[in-house]
Amino acid sequence: MTDAHPVTGLDDVVHQRVRLGILTITHEARRVEFGYLRTQLQLTAGNLSQHLGVLETAGLVEIEKGYEGKRGRTWITLTPAGNAALAEEIGRLKLLIARVEEGFTA
């Protein structure tokens, strides 16, 4: 019996470039503002909102809206499930790379 291929365990919510980028930045920053994410990921506001909605529905991020002075600010934080999902995704990506390299050397 062989181990399941790492691809079979990939989570469609996380295994997507933009959403993986959102999770990575939020994990590294602890807390990140909507505008920073938009600039770093080079997305339109609508596009980013859609991805954040997917992540929020999956319980991977929390979105907090507030004001600083008269300016509206939206802050995003990672939930414990989001942290775990990101670690899992990175682990699986590393496994995939290892499998590909094994394939080349076999």
Partner: peptide
Amino acid sequence: MTTDSVSA
């Protein structure tokens, strides 16, 4: 970045 899901 694109909005396309990354294939396995």
